[in-house]
Design a protein around this nucleic acid. Structure first.
Lengths: 348, 348
DNA sequence: CGTAGGCTTGGGAGCGCTCCCAAGAGTTGT
DNA sequence: ACAACTCTTGGGAGCGCTCCCAAGCCTACG
């Protein structure tokens, strides 16, 4: 009843664990943090005490004393969460969550609307001290990544802003995905293969276009810019692009859309023009989202391993944080590219 | 250069702000926390110092000293994040984020898979001290809500577990939504109106069924249990249920499915049976998800105000936390029901 | 047998903030 | 003119933990 008096209601503290185990506070701390400089016997005693007391370290105290937070932020551009409704958002979260599951790291969710808010966010992130940041859907002119880099805050970006991305990044192989789609068309004897692109200031969209071009060139098709219609990832944009395409090249017999949603728009226009899918025109999308599976006919689409991207991003960020705090050499920035996969359905 | 010496690289502390403003630490704290017991003049001085120094309070220190965290957790059953891929998940997050935007509250995202994990989570949540918890998609036998209640942790639940939900809850009007769907069928002259239900251990699914029954009864239709096919919210389940329905009542001319995904399954079966939608059989879903918009024909569906549910949940939780900490009377547990809306498209 | 060096260990010194007590300043009342 | 209050204000005492220094023990080597 003397030393380790249990305070009514409160959760046990390190001090109480130490007392119970008959060791000093420092030693108890060492055991809990897995330091090797503790004798096996002492370690056992402390672990027993932890178990008996149901001790769980107080995060705030840790953060304050240790000058870290054991938390990372996932920054989502609020303006696009709706766009993310398609599996993207939740799959990324799943992946990140899985990678963090047996870590002490917490995941903070931060929605930031416009650039102004994102700038404010940078201050916020450093002030409230997150250990690292996960960025998704970053546009080429977003100020946040550079801000974070200046602040020396570990960060990982999904996709990348441009070919010379300086931040560690995890991307899917947009180039190969597009190429696979076009190769598929070619192998099935399609001759006039068009593409509807996404916003080309998004690097991934550019890469999909590159893949399209490369595949056609490799097959000896003559490039024809009339077969390339720019759009903006929206359904309406996809429809508009499709109309242009039909006008310019009525003989088009295959369309690779850089997103499923745009493919949905294109499909609508093809229908209205009396063309059958895939008999008259074959169609392939990108993302392999719910839209693809439920389209009529079901849409062939390029699948991205989104959940795995989330998992990988988290892993890379943890490494980045660890190496940064251990003062290790600032090893080369990882730039990971995950494979995409063509999911063939009935539209092609 | 004397008193308020800026420590290289470090962010300013309260102490520094106080020094700069020529006041004591306590006074500076009062200003920052909006206490009224400060003279206008002093307040101004401190505010100026805060602005000049770009001071942002250290969260960890606050949490430690104040015994609170300024963070709430959103608990998502990991097993269902995929189910949430349809707008649900991201819309809830949007809503919650919006409600928290001009608060100091942070949003923590927690994925918990099975019951064991959820139990561990309860300990975790109290230990790491979150100020409150948002629960989504809770099943009738989930142990977490009761655990949280015992622990005295403020919590708000989306939907509810049963009619006598004890936790504050925010739900959409499943009953009226279903009724509106069926009324719509009736007003268009449909005679044999069937329903495909969700898992009936989910309260919302039960309520949709109740609404269906009530609408038919009100219109004087004789109840026929053969028109009710139970399923599980899955596409495959929806298809199976539709097959049963066709077998038992080949004359069915309208189907209300308790989710868009099940409606998609039903549509497939109807097609295969040679029935046209909506000519032979009208179809209505629930959720108004992307699936509904992209189905062929576009699916009439009952829309839930999911983003608003998120916003409301957050607001209710903040109130709950505030009233709890101010020791106010444990006012009645709010039980909010938000209206649903029938979005009519071409399938009905 | 003495001493240097390696392991463990205990516990002081903060981390930055909130709480709260007590002191100073200013008012009012008698 | 003095007591009794009220309003502000300063700053000590922690919150629970990590860091790190110094002390205690042992082993090994010259």
């Amino acid at each position: 009843m003397a030393a380790a008096r249990v305070r009514s209601g409160g959760r046990p503290t390190l001090e109480e664990v130490a007392a119970r185990a008959g060791v000093g506070r420092g030693t108890a701390s060492r055991v809990i943090n897995g330091s090797p400089r503790v004798s096996a016997q002492t370690r056992e005693a402390v672990e027993a005490a932890v178990a008996e007391l149901g001790y769980v370290p107080n995060r705030a105290a840790r953060a304050l004393a240790g000058n870290r937070t054991d938390a990372i932020a996932l920054v989502v551009p609020e303006s696009e969460t709706r766009f993310f409704a398609e599996p993207y958002f939740s799959d990324i979260v799943r992946g990140v969550g899985a990678a963090l599951a047996d870590t002490e790291m917490q995941l903070l969710l931060t929605l930031a609307g416009n650039d102004r808010e994102r700038r404010r966010l940078a201050q916020y992130l450093t002030a409230h001290r997150v250990d690292g940041v996960l960025l998704v859907s970053v546009h080429a002119d977003d100020p946040l990544p550079d801000l974070l880099e200046q602040l020396g805050m570990p960060a990982v970006i999904s996709g990348r802003r441009h070919a010379a991305e300086t931040l560690p990044s995890v991307d899917s192989d947009n180039f190969e995905g597009a190429r696979a789609a076009v190769d598929h068309f070619i192998s099935r004897g399609r001759r006039s293969i068009a593409t509807i692109t996404g916003r080309l200031d998004v690097y991934g969209a550019q890469r999909r276009l590159d893949g399209y071009r490369k595949a056609l060139a490799a097959a000896g098709h003559d490039p024809d810019e009339r077969l390339i219609a720019p759009a903006d990832f929206s359904e309406e944009g996809g429809a508009r692009a499709m109309r242009e395409l039909l006008e310019r090249r009525p003989d088009v017999d295959a369309v690779f859309a850089a997103s499923d949603v745009m493919a949905a728009g294109a499909r609508q226009v093809l229908r209205e023009s009396g063309r059958r899918i895939p008999d008259d025109v074959a169609l392939i999308g990108f993302d392999d989202s719910a839209v693809a599976r439920h389209m009529d006919p079901p849409l062939t689409s390029v699948r991205q391993p989104i959940e795995e991207m989330g998992r990988t991003m988290a892993r890379v960020l943890l490494q980045e944080i660890a190496s940064r705090s251990s003062g290790a050499a600032p090893e080369e920035r990882p730039r990971i590219v995950l494979p995409t996969e063509l999911v063939v359905r009935e539209s092609s």
